[in-house]
Nucleic acid binder design. Structure first.
Lengths: 196, 196
DNA sequence: GTCTATATATTGATAGAC
DNA sequence: GTCTATCAATATATAGAC
């Protein structure tokens, strides 16, 4: 196994465990066991557990465009439908995990925004990048939206609804709250687009 | 100090620390030190750390009506304004903590929905109770809302937006995302109320 | 870069006197 | 109900040979 394979494997396993169990609840020893890597190797690449987390967050940023946004955008050419295609992707993730796991970024944001400043900044950067993707869609649909709408703020609202909806779906172990919130978001968009 | 004073103090300190640091990141020893209580006393009242958490959640449910809903409802008689008064209360909490702490229930929901079944159910119960409070307002305003609106789902949407907005405020350490999302929620309500 | 062995602190929880 | 002392397990991290 090449050097960077080990690094990648550690990032993959750590990302999965942080997502499944949370950061604090995931022990280094569990990561080592599941990645089949020894302690010395992990600490060769990542001096601390926090550094490993930062690596995981960097990886999420790298994968946002190719694995989250682009696949959804490819489903349709209508910019507003593209936004709801992204939201549909998260619904699929909920469905596949029985509404157990939620958004990996959102989970970490509420678990440890405060604890580590560097982590908080990276999480904020991830949210900003996600919103940028949504805003690109909104900008494309600018002529269909009322003039007074701040498209950056509207993108932020879309993220807000998505994260809140995933939280509710997870807490209730049901897609219903997610679908209900998506329906209202859709209704809001319909009204915005109609009353331009 | 009377027996139940000790229990109350443990619940108060544990609630604060779980809110500030998260559940997994909060050690029993820290709770004992800050509550000035000895190990034996804690385990007399709560057989495990999880039981202590369940106690904290029970306390949150007890205090929802008197400390969250009623104070907000007393600020105005208009049922829709009452909803936004509740949301304003959370804004105040964000402001007082420099956007550091977020919603105690939401934080716990994303940290440990999956880990402990009993905990997840109590969290879901808390969310349901909160939504019930909002729905009472919506029911009062039923004649001003379009007939097709499911008021339970709309209450759920209000919670979704509130939780998502608190997450964003915390991640960005700024009230702006919270205010932006509240403005959009208000705009949605205005459109619903106008187009009844 | 990887290996094994280990250090040190802290974790949640218990025992038994009072 | 509260106290002190302590347990066994686990935590993150390190040392040093290979």
């Amino acid at each position: 196994m090449s050097e960077s394979d080990t690094r990648e494997k550690l990032l993959t396993v750590a990302a999965r465990l942080f997502h499944e169990q949370g950061y604090a609840a995931t022990g280094i020893s569990t990561i080592l066991r599941e990645a089949k890597v020894n302690s010395g190797s992990l600490y060769y690449f990542f001096p601390t557990k926090e550094a490993l987390l930062l690596g995981v967050l960097d990886q999420y940023l790298d994968r946002l465009e190719p694995e989250v946004l682009r696949p959804a955008f490819e489903k349709t050419n209508d910019p507003i439908e593209r936004i709801f295609a992204v939201l549909g992707g998260y619904r699929q993730m909920l469905q596949m995990t029985g509404c157990a796991m939620g958004c990996p970024i959102g989970n970490l944001a509420l678990e440890l925004s405060d604890s580590y400043p560097g982590v908080r900044e990276k999480l904020a950067g991830l949210f900003r990048a996600w919103c940028d993707g949504i805003q690109r869609c909104l900008d494309e649909a600018a002529d269909r939206l009322p003039d007074h709408v701040d498209r950056g703020m509207l993108a932020q609202f879309v993220l807000t609804v998505m994260e809140g909806a995933m939280m509710q779906a997870r807490a209730h172990r049901s897609l219903d709250p997610y679908d209900a919130s998506m329906a209202h978001l859709k209704s809001y968009f319909d009204r915005l687009l109609a009353g331009a």
